[in-house]
């Protein structure tokens, strides 16, 4: 049923994109700018697709900068600002020119009672307008602080890569707040993958006695951490892991991540 809804959303978005006004940028033909050796989509192209012509006339482009994303990826950043320096639009690209982030500022907070399928259709429409790849599979839809998050988690060999993938953030009325595309490097999977039962036994041995573990382990590509739970490096390749969730005696939720081959501890997370 959910897949049917998603396919319907895709169809609606395709129709909407086809009937979009002539000002919409045809994505695959979007010019790619080569400036100071950088290969990227010019912010003006993105702005033309997202902003009204009157808005555009009042904006200026800030100098391009090279930044490191929160996930440690090197990116080029372009920013459109108003005459008084207020940021209106930010575009970040990977050094190979792939678009990674679009963030609009001051998108109105109005609510609109957008349905889940409506939000997916709007998100797909935005991706198509910008010429971005349509992610495979159905997304998850969540709300936070009046915004709607439509998230396609990246999957490799059928296994999710948490925090990677395509995320479109919409206002309650369906206007684009921003979108991001994350793609972390992955390590080669182990030659032999341990059984889930073995992972469960190893996790229980690591956790304090009294920890309730009710769910079966699941595979995921995780960021390895050191013994104190800190990532060894933000761009360290993700490794295939068995993730085991439990609840400590005081009610704290906890997840331990074990190497899918050796069952050595790779990382963990908790919820206060």
């Amino acid at each position: 049923m959910y897949n049917v809804r998603w396919l319907l959303s895709l169809l609606v978005a395709l129709l909407a994109a086809c009937s979009a006004p002539g000002t919409a940028i045809a994505p695959s033909h979007a010019p790619v700018m080569e400036s100071a050796g950088f290969n990227m989509r010019p912010i003006t192209t993105v702005a033309t697709a997202l902003l009204e012509p009157l808005e555009l006339s009042r904006l200026v482009v800030s100098p391009i900068s090279v930044v490191r994303s929160d996930a440690g990826e090197q990116r080029t950043r372009q920013v459109l600002i108003t005459a008084d320096g207020g940021e209106v639009l930010r575009v970040e690209s990977a050094l190979d020119g792939s678009l990674r982030l679009i963030a609009k500022s001051d998108v109105t907070l109005e609510g609109g009672g957008l349905s889940e399928s409506g939000a997916i259709a709007r998100a797909l429409r935005q991706l198509m307008r910008l010429g971005l790849e349509i992610p495979v599979g159905p997304p998850t839809v969540r709300t936070a602080a009046g915004r709607i998050l439509v998230v396609w988690t990246r999957r490799v060999r059928g296994v999710p890569v948490p925090n990677d993938g395509t995320r479109v953030v919409l206002s309650g009325a369906g206007a684009l707040v921003g979108l991001s595309i994350e793609e972390s490097p992955l390590a080669a999977p182990p030659m032999h993958i341990a059984q889930g039962e073995g992972a469960l036994r190893s996790a229980i041995a690591l956790l304090p006695s009294g920890t309730a573990v009710d769910e079966p382990p699941v595979l995921a590509w995780v960021l390895p951490t050191n013994t104190a739970g800190e990532p060894t490096a933000e761009r360290a390749p993700r490794r295939l892991a068995w993730c085991v969730n439990g609840v400590l005696f005081d009610g704290t939720a906890i997840e331990v991540q074990l190497d899918a081959g050796s069952l050595a501890l790779l990382g963990w997370d908790g919820a206060p």
Partner: peptide, 26 residues
């Protein structure tokens, strides 16, 4: 980076955190 609190919050919604693990509110 000079963003207002609301804009900084909106930008943070775009970073790589698992929305199943966190629902921020302001």
């Amino acid at each position: 980076d000079g963003a207002t609190a609301g804009a900084a919050f909106d930008r943070a919604l775009l970073v790589a955190y698992d929305p199943k693990h966190l629902t921020p509110e302001w």
